[in-house]
Write a protein that binds this DNA or RNA. Sequence first.
RNA 1: CGGGCUGUGGCGCAGCUUGGUUAGCGCGUCGGUCUGGGGGACCGAAGGUCGGAGGUUCAAAUCCUCUCAGCCCGACCA
Length: 571
Amino acid sequence: MRWSNLFIPTLRDAPAEAEAISHQLLVRGGFIRQLQSGHYSMLPLGWKIHKKVAAIIREEMDAIGGQEFLLPAMHPADIWQKSGRWETMGEEMFRFVDRKGADQALGMTHEEVFASLGTEITSYRHLPQIWYQIQTKFRDEPRPKSGLLRVREFAMKDSYSFDLDDEGLDASFSLHHDAYVQIFNRLGLDAFPVEASSGAMGGSASVEFMVESEAGEDDVARCSSCNYSANVERASAALALIENRSSSGEPESFPTPDVRTIAELAELGHPPEHQIKTLVYVVDGELTLILLRGDHPFLEQKFIDITGVTDLRPATGEEIRSALGASPGSLGAVGVENLPIYADLALQDRTGMATGANVDDTHYSGVDVQRDIAVNEWVDVRGILEGEPCVDCGNPITISRCIEAGHIFKLGRRYAEAMGTTVLDSEGKSQTLTMGSYGIGVERAMAAVAETHHDENGLIWPMSIAPYEVAITLLKTDHTDSVDLAEDIYKALTAAGIDVLLDDREERPGVKFADSELIGIPLRITIGPRGLENGIAEVNDRSTNQKAEISLETVVEEVTNMVNDAKNESF
RNA sequence: CGGGCUGUGGCGCAGCUUGGUUAGCGCGUCGGUCUGGGGGACCGAAGGUCGGAGGUUCAAAUCCUCUCAGCCCGACCA
């Protein structure tokens, strides 16, 4: 294409509201524009990348036997009511009523619809099936942010596997796992799999594909030496050994006026690791105590995943006072018998602990957890800390910020059961299918690439998804020989199947260089009188900043090879 | 939902405290001249309901009230 005919509205300054670097560069480069918070228009340049990302995903899904569908974005309420998610999805699902008075929703994901279609699989002989689509999802996010990273309307590749048994599901899951590795590799994303929480999707296991980036929203714990990696929402760590302090025969109360926090109690000679933190939550409507070591944060997601509760919120001050008779700061579980008590595993066998006495301004010391507290259930609900020992090998854990680029789930039979997705097995008996679901957000993948592939001059797209593979920068538009040469090279490269952008605008060279770097075209051929005289063209590599002077005789062939090499490199 | 910030041509901003000609500046855009290997110079021009509504006032971008939108932090989130 000729740049002079294209709509590529580049900006010198990023809009003030853009903070994430991917957001700034995608707007400045003329790839996207915001319509409203969380909704972006794809401009021609952005849409070209979008299509290339989607094409890679399609190739890899097809390669594992996936079949492409396209399902409606708008759903009747009843399929969501069948799975129970009409209620549980809450405000995140866009809902409205049509003219007939029927409840409608905009699809945030498609387990229900695909599982319904799956009822037409009638025999085990037709299994396994892998079905997918690349389609628009709508989610009323409480806070869209960072440009394309978290939006309310986006294209998602979502796929769904149907199998008879767990072995089949494992196989389908593993195929997706490998396909995802391949997809992210081809996108130029350094994504790694981590154990994840399944959240609202439910199911037995899930793996997220993470790309390390400050712009991300997840924290991932990784072992510095072995392969252990997990989202902190479910990560575990071994405990560094702590010597128990001795306990006397029974807890002793002592006055603690104005002591409200772990830190304040620590000043009185009770370090955080020798304290019990008592949290009061309302769990599915029931007031509940959750105990942790003083220095350990509580991770609600781990609690939800372990207990399977659906509704969890901190208790209010009044609720706490009426149940325990004291205010936060002096709470404890010693002697509490009428409330359920969950305790973190780190408190097991601990003695000589300090905790609130359920009397304002009073604490206990010498608490023996086993002896003095009626723990109903021991659970791993603490957030792990940087540097703690790995559960597998004992080496220190590091925690890093990541973008969740993909997430794959073993769903089990939950949705198939709700939708009646059954087949007859080899013995003629009806069996409910087991499902997996697997997602990649297309725009988020673009943003993740932008977030990790840029320099001070702009974006640096990998060859595999670059909007144009080669830019021809024509320095002097009134120099006939240059124009003719640029046209010839443009035609020859295009004929060789290369995506070429001919910058034939009547702009000064500096503007053209700056623009081609901003929009991140991987290779640039510079054509000008000076090179012409010497029979050479200058070829610049955007990622390495290397320049080569190549004879005009061979430049088409060499650039073609460079493009194809770069495309194959990431396979 | 809680906290903070911001809305003035396509983009970035000033003006607001202390109300007062025709609302400025840079970038970009259009026409022209000179230029031409890293966002060039000069001349000329177009483009603005100052987010919206109401109010105070002789007079409102500026003061008051309400409201809408956007961004950031938190909560929340496949």
